[in-house]
Write a protein that binds this DNA or RNA. Sequence first.
RNA 1: GCGCGCUUAGCUCAGUGGUAGAGCGACUGUUUUACACACAGUAGGUCGGGGGUUCGAUCCCCUCAGCGCGCACCA
Length: 994
Amino acid sequence: MPHELDSRYDHKAIEHSIYKKWEESGYFNPDRVVSDEGRVVSKKKSLRRSKLATRNSPLETRPFSIIMPPPNANGSLHLGHAVFVTLQDIMARYHRMKGNKTLWLPGADHAGFETQVVFNKKLEKEGRSWFSMNREELYREIWNFTQANKKLMEQQLRKLGASCDWSREKFTLDPDIVRIVYDTFGRLYKDGLIERDAGLVNWCPKHQTSLSDLEIKDEERADPFYYLRYGPFTIGTARPETKFGDKYVVMHPDDARYKEYKDGEQFHLEWINGPLTATILKDKAVDKDFGSGVMTITPWHDPVDFELAKRRNLDKEQIIDERGRLLSIAGEFEGMKITEARPKIVEKLQSKGLVDKVDEAYRHVVRACYKCGTLIEPQIKSQWFVRMNKQIAKSPAAAQAMAGKKKQRASQSLAEMAVRAVKERKIKFYPEHAKKVFLHWLRNLRDWNISRQIVWGIRIPAWFCASCGEVRVMNPLTANPVRSRAYPAADGTSPGDRGAATSNGTKWLLVRHGETEWNKEERAHGHADPPLNNEGRAYAESLAARLKERHIGIILTSDLSRARETAEIVARATGAELIVSKGLRGRHIGIAQGMHHRERRRLYGDIFQSYEDAPPGGESFKDFEERVWNAFRQHHALYRHKNVAVVTHIETIHAILKRTKNWDMKQMIAHQTEKAGFTEFDILDPCPKCKNDLYEQDPDVFDTWFSSGQWPYATLLAGREKRGSSKLEVRGSNIPPRSSNDFQTFYPTDVLETAGDILFFWVARMVMFGLYRTGEIPFRNVYLHGLVRDKDRQKMSKSKDNVIDPLGVAEEYGTDAVRMALVAGNTAGNDTIVSEDKIRGYRNFATKVWNIARFVLMHKTGSTNYQSPITNYTPKLTATDKKFLVETKKIKTEVGRHIERFEFHLAAEKAYHYIWHTFADKVVEHYKDRWPKEGEKRKQTKRTLERQAAASYTLENILANSLTMLHPFMPFVTEAIYKKLKPEEMLMVKPWRE
RNA sequence: GCGCGCUUAGCUCAGUGGUAGAGCGACUGUUUUACACACAGUAGGUCGGGGGUUCGAUCCCCUCAGCGCGCACCA
């Protein structure tokens, strides 16, 4: 019997195959136009069909687009993701049924720093760390890690019923996305909105990178506050360890207590490590009422002091290094961590009588890395900053280029552009008050540091001339190719480099040879010629692997075995041509040859540090450098258009670096050996300033939000280059070729639906970049959802063990139940409470819907269940039947209106309430009377049969409408039921208004 | 310090200028052929305190209190 239904809805048996049918139908792709019969027809044809044309009135065929916030490809989806999937899917499904050309574009984010931190935790468990890995290794491993997660995540999105267009899926590291990100960087640079500057950055001593102002969290805590005697003054500080170099003492110009002192006046004092000359400054930056009203300044490690020093052009000195240890200025405290040093410094100050008093319970706010909680140590660093408040001189070149027409706009900054768009109500916020928060933030915005000292991300497309430091910004994916060059994703530059060329297209690498027994014994080689040992050969193999992906054409090496053997191993692996050059030999050290380094330093230390003096029987550094440089220059002239690896001796590398970078001996010696062991140059068009062509690329990568901030237009433009989707074609469906103008069709997008906590991180940046590059807002509406909490209002976290795995509960109660639980009671901007009880409640509702359908199908015209003869009777609708029908349509319209107003909870609750408490409780109950009860002997007349036919018709109609209105919320169970009702059709594309 | 919210039934939350709703929970009854993942019913709130506007306020305004969040350079 065709309409036999079990009394329970078995989601497990059905969900997977339903999703598969949806996906294979191709209806997730907006390029498919749906006819009323549910078949796909070509666009031109479909418009000629009058029926379709009627339904798809101009209003309804307008496109509707949502770009999915790309989940981080570093873990599996949690309930927060399930919330966005549900809300966005509701909109997508509703608009698709309404007849809009609906695009929901999925993606994944590489999530730079976050992912590298997550990955590092994994490494730490294995006893490894990112700091002990080279760039390529680390990049490759994280690449594989994210790809695996991404795949998993896509499956999870499917499980949640996401009706997104997989053929347009994007990853933030896709080459076509990266190209656009590079382009934006270049244009911002040209417009003067991105500058490289030595600014004070938030430095995380654990992760060894700078962070933006948004990536730090404030933490209130109690620390001792020390009052120290600084000459005639008393200064207050919570950080005595930064005070070693303080030589300016500042007070407010109006402070009567210090009126006898004059700005610029100098005095001598005894300080932590001895006498010091200090200068008095009068400046309004000082708060008279705080502490003693006098402070000394540490510009290198404090934002206020930095600003003051910058404004008044004062000296700045670094006190604390990147690992959080004191530098040599600290004298006896050098090398100590600040936590360790602080009490000892205070002790010393005390012993010198310099401590006035200590306030032990001083409460203040410290800033910490938002990922690891390590205290942020401000440092001065040369980094790339986006100038948020700098006026763009003319209308932005970027927007003109993209819009293809001139946009006349007044001079304004990135922040002002965004403020204006919001104030002009071009972008609406849900909840509305988010607008105030948004504007408040924009108006207090500071420059944004986008440099990150990590590997995982899009490498900044900026090069520095190795000789004079001149900056060159270019898009390596579009710059004029001299020759094509393939960069694999794992080479540490960026996957965007694949198959692309830079303006000159070649790389020169200076790499060190493998180890010999002499190296192991720490004996100096000179021109002695021991072979590689086992470790040396193993190193050569790993070097070969590292170089293999770089398409090395030529390997230059010296004729000495250790270099030459290393080079041969690399040549075998890479297929590169080997060129042996005696000129590249290391320094000839004469009598010191074979000596232990310590011995050599003891006997000849001065000579080896000197430029002109030669050791007995050996070369002076000057002669050595000349010889190496000549050889290097000759080869460089011959092979500069090829990718070259120079496999040679560490002194040779040092000599080349010294010449290239114009170092003196001191600078060269200070250069760290391990860094020189793998030096990478790009050979570009000669530097306009100094005519040299060796460049080094900035090793930093972009803050991840710099790329995701461009997501709306990047995804839509990137899609332009690709036609069709091989992925879906493989599955045997007939997806038409990708529309070539996604950007024109779908931009600006309709809704940006995302978590409220990334309003600044993401939403604000998208608005600014969108306006800057396209001249238009990226989305018309911003809907923000809150955090998911458990029934005790607790934030879900692994440590609290209250995490609900969305896929787990979906497995147990059905995806539909989870989706309903996530949308019911979920208002814009507020946190959502989800408990298993709530999910169970909506599972019960799914069963309810199922059983309504069971009843309707049992009483359906033609059903064999009751051996109903009503098939032959024309339904004669009674007034009640009509009333019921009208009511359903009214509710359906209201549900739709709520969705359009972003009142998803009201829509869901309305549909729920109607279906359960009207349709089931009243309508179905009402119709039971039209059929004879069991055992009842009621005479079936023409009239009763007509009334039964009317009941059947009405019930079926109400069921279809109920399924329609519920489908956006509970897509699986509704589609499953609809399949029983109309086996040939698909509810997902059933017109909403039918 | 500045800004933004929240305070409604035991719990979690909706909601409206005309003296309140849902889910879960509690209690009573019911195995009636759509559904016990159900049905019928019951109890439970002076809508944080105070003041104002209004014919009328839980809803609008002011104020106080408690809670939460965001921003902020007080060394």
